[in-house]
Design a protein around this nucleic acid. Structure first.
Length: 291
DNA sequence: CTAGGGTTACCC
DNA sequence: GGGTAACCCTAG
């Protein structure tokens, strides 16, 4: 263990950047073997280039001025030859995967509190407690769940692994399979979702008066009200998000999906609340599951 | 060979 | 303790 950590120097970073600009992202081997960067990246393998580029692209913007001239990517002082042999088909060669992440101290704040992300651990626990699958929740499922609920930076994908492992180490959660996690027995009982209103899934409007029996689960209008309020807040948040990220198709798509879901939820909640207010007995029978 | 997930060490 | 960056392993 003679090499604790080999931090990337500015030279190597710049070489990598140029290599990506020249050959394109994904051609790590070509960049590494390129005589132009070979002497600089001699101590780095193609995998190292890939990893570094991954960390580099994910942490774009923010960060403030770290040290030295942090040229974005348009800096081409003495590198004129950059047109020939560039007929690459790689379209995704932009490290600016910057999303609407949090605002570091000193940076301009967003228009309003869009709730960047409470905490990684909290989000994981929330997702796990909501899903709470006996078979365990897969990593991808957790990621999707959190991505749908909170605006997380792209680094979240990598952080989630570390956080998960730490939670497992802290006995907060347990891993079922190689890729599945679930809450520990202490938490798996019934963890109350902090900001998640367990609203009814769906209701069949075709047979509203067709009540089977008195379930006694919606005797009061509190849950309905809560659900309605939560849904409304969600819709508003979704609208704000959609308005803010109208330039990003993927983001907009996600928000749209969420807004659509929450909207239907709100309608249902309002209807239930109305019925409950009139003393009617409403039942919820989720016929099928969507998405 | 590359992409992605997992692990470990350093920093706040 | 939480977060990030480098390192490592595995699947496609």
């Amino acid at each position: 263990m003679g090499a604790p950590k080999q931090k990337w120097t500015s030279e190597e970073e710049e070489a990598l950047r140029r290599g990506v600009l020249k050959h394109g992202a994904g051609k790590w081997r070509t960049i590494q073997k390129d005589p132009e960067f070979s002497p600089v990246l001699s101590s780095r393998s193609n995998i190292d280039l890939k990893d570094k580029w991954r960390n580099l692209s994910f942490s774009a913007s923010g960060m403030g001025s770290r040290d030295k001239t942090r040229g974005p990517r348009t800096t081409g002082p003495s590198c004129s030859p950059l047109s020939t042999s560039q007929a690459s088909s790689q379209a995704s060669v932009a490290p600016v995967a910057n999303k609407v992440a949090e605002a570091p101290p000193g940076a301009e704040k967003k228009q309003q509190e869009v709730k960047p992300h409470p905490k990684y651990g909290a989000m994981i626990l929330e997702a796990l407690s909501e899903l709470n699958e006996p078979n365990g929740t897969e990593l991808t499922e957790i990621c999707s769940f959190i991505e749908q609920r909170h605006l997380v930076p792209t680094t979240f994908r990598r952080v989630i692994g570390t956080k998960l492992r730490r939670l497992v180490d802290s006995k907060k959660i347990e891993k079922v399979d190689t890729k599945s996690y679930r809450l520990a027995d202490s938490f798996a009982t019934r963890t109350p979702a902090p900001i998640k209103a367990s609203a009814p899934k769906q209701k069949d409007p075709s047979k509203p008066s067709k009540v089977s029996k008195n379930l006694g689960l919606f005797a009061t209008s509190s849950p309905a009200l809560e659900a309605a309020m939560a849904a409304a807040a969600k819709v508003a948040d979704a609208e704000v998000k959609a308005h803010d990220a109208h330039d990003q198709m993927m983001e907009a798509e996600r928000i749209l999906k969420m807004a659509e879901k929450t909207e239907s939820l709100l309608t249902i909640a309002a209807e239930i609340y109305d019925r409950c207010s009139r003393g009617e007995i409403t039942t919820l029978n989720p016929p099928q599951r969507e998405v």
